[in-house]
Structure formats: C-alpha cells, structure tokens
Amino acid sequence: MWIEEIQNSKGTRYKYCERFTLPNGSTKKISITLNSNSRYAHKQAIIELQKKQDETLKTLGINKVTTFYDVAMMWLDYTKPTIKLSTHINHELHVKKVFKYLETSTLIKDVTPLVIEGILQQIYYIENLSYSYMRSVFVTIKAIYKHAKRKGIISTVIDFDDVEIKKKPFSHTDIAKRQNKFLDADELKEVIEKLTKHDSRIGLLFEFMSITGLRIGELLALRLCDYDKEKATININGTIQFQYVNSSEDKRGTPKNIYSVREITLCNRGVQILNSIITDNKRRELWFEGYTDNGYIFTTARGNPYDLQFLNRMLKKVHIEGKTLTTHIFRHTHISMLAELGVPLKSIMQRVGHNDPNTTLGIYTHVTQSMQDDVIAKLNTRKA
C-alpha cells in the first residue's frame, strides 16, 4: 500500500492505493481517499481496501477461485441450466474421473498439459477405458479451462495441442468386441424368442428396435400421435430422460440433436408390432383400473414408459454366447442388417439420425458373416 497526497482548496487529503494480483496473473489498482494520515487512518484504509478488493473480485465473478476443482464446480453450475440433465450428469462424472487422479487443492495454474496428459493416460492406458470416453473427459477439461479464461481467472488458455494421447493399436480382443456389438439373424431370432417367453411385450419392443434402429430413449418416447398408420411411418421427435420421474413434465425431452429428428418408414413387421401393442394398450385401458393412457405406445402396466434398469434386467435373463446384450445392440444390429442389404451410407445415416459419416462407419457398419460368405461365393464363381 502506498499513499498519495491530494492538495485542494479544503486542505490535504490522502489517497491510499494498493495494487493486487488477480488469479490470472494480471494486476488491478484500487484506492480510497481519507482526510487523515494517522495510524488509525492506516488501519481503516487496510480494512476498506480489503473490502474493495473483495468487491472487485466479486464483480469479475472470480471470488478468489484459484484451484482447478473450484473452477470445475463453477463451470458445472454455470452450464447446468443450459443443457439436458443427462448431459450435466455426464459432465459431473467426467469431473469426478479427473479428480480421481488430481488433488482438489491443485491450483489451476499448476494443471499443465503434462498433468492433463497424465490423467488421460491413466484413463485410457491403465483403466483401459475407451478412446472416445477419454476424449470426452479431455473435452470437459478444455471447457473448464475456457470458462476460467472467460471469468478472468486465467489470462490465457494453455496449448492443448501439447497434450498427446496416441490411439492404441487394434488387438484381437478389440476386433472381437466390434463383432460382438451386433447380432446376426440367428442370434437375433434366439434373443427375441427368449425375451418373449419372459414377457411378450418386451420381446416385441426389442424386435421393433432391431427393425427400426431407434435409440431406446427414442423408442420409449414414441407416442400414438407420432404414428401415421396410413403412410406406415413414425416421427422421431423426442427422447425419454430416465433421470426424471414419470410424473415430471421433463420426462419426455428433446432428441439427442437436430439430426435425430426424422421420419422413419416401417416395414410390414414394424406395422404389425405397433398395431399389436396399440391394441393391447386399449385393452389394458378398458380392463385394468391402474392403467392410465399417457399417449405413449411402449408402456408398462400403468401406461408409463419402461424404466431402463428394468429393460436391462430383462436382457440379463438371456444368454447368447460371446455377446453382451444391451439396449444399444439392437440399434447396431439394425445398421448391420442395412449394410448387409447394401443400403447406401447416406440412407443409413438418415434412418438412424447421424450427421457424421465416420460415426456410422466406425460404430455400426460391421461386416457380417453372410457378407464375408457372399464375397467368397463371388470369388469362387469368377472366371479366370
């Protein structure tokens, strides 16, 4: 703190000045003016300057945040009102994963590219989690840093190009995992038959997924008003948000992205399944007092969309050698069927609601055994 004398017609006044450093490394000058230069005035100046410093930080939205953890919490609070609940939950999980390897007391200035690289290496190489998951955590770290820059907590964002994570080479296990992400025709038939023995409606639900490629949230959000019986089409315009209770108005949310909004033409079997479920819903409404028609098609005995955990429990009752059954495997299976039928990539993308062709090619277009057999058959019949 330093003092500047101010001379005016009323006499001498004293300007108590102080320059303090912001968490981003820049400095800020603050001052107050008093009529005295006494010891008491000095003490009063220190108190008032501290208040002014706190007010300045608060105005800048900094609140003396210096740790990476505090900035991460700020970012979570800031973004929560602007995103879906499911996205916010994913962000929270990513942040939690970061602080599995980083002390919460670590200052943001100490989170260097080398530190970030170490965290990502633990996730990808040591925990053996997927490359896409590791990249998602990396995106979260970047977002936190950018938020810190906007709030003036740091003056510049680090060069994230200095963070290098090389993709692991494909192993035989990886290849097997890719092949295990879909069901061939015989496996699908077996799964549907086994599910039907447990619950016929569940069997129809997953069969419908396999012939439409819908995400589970999209399927459960399907309403009677989305079905055009004459055109044999369904309009995909929503998704079920499993984080909300059934009575919540937010239970039926918007689709994953703008490309997820689409119209799908049904095959004959798809029409049969929908008509069967709709007829059964009407029967339940007439005969079961606990059933409430909420407009949904694939519902429980009470008329609510199925719970994801319940569906996963049903799938665990079915065993197919070498395959892990999830709700998403039926979506993979549908795209594999389309690839086997020779459907153009653009048509596949439109049907499943993808914008990036690499997503479709990298995740869904698996070479089925029948396609391999077809290649061999054509090579065998080729004339020399």
Rank of each mutant, 00 (worst) to 15 (best):
Q7S: 14
T12A: 02
K15M: 05
L22Y: 11
N24W: 01
G25Q: 02
K28M: 02
S31R: 04
L34R: 14
Y40Q: 13
H42M: 10
H42G: 08
L49G: 10
Q50Y: 14
E55A: 15
K58T: 14
N63E: 12
K64Y: 06
F68S: 00
D70Y: 00
W75R: 10
L76V: 02
T87H: 04
H88W: 14
E92W: 03
K96H: 10
V98A: 03
S105I: 00
L107C: 02
I108Y: 04
D110P: 01
T112Y: 10
P113W: 11
G118A: 03
S130W: 02
Y131I: 06
Y133R: 09
K149E: 13
K149D: 07
I153F: 02
D161M: 07
D162L: 15
H172F: 14
I175Y: 13
K177Y: 09
A185G: 03
E187H: 05
E190A: 15
E190P: 00
V191T: 10
T196Q: 01
K197G: 03
L204S: 08
I211Y: 05
L214M: 13
G217P: 10
L219D: 07
L219I: 04
L220T: 07
A221K: 06
L222Y: 06
C225L: 04
N237Y: 00
N237D: 05
Q241D: 15
F242E: 13
D250C: 05
K256N: 04
N275L: 05
D280H: 14
L286I: 13
Y291V: 15
Y291G: 11
Y291N: 07
F298E: 07
A301R: 13
R302D: 11
G303T: 08
L308G: 07
Q309L: 13
E321S: 13
H332A: 10
T333Q: 09
A339Y: 15
K346V: 11
S370E: 15
Q372S: 14
D373W: 03
V375K: 09
T381P: 00
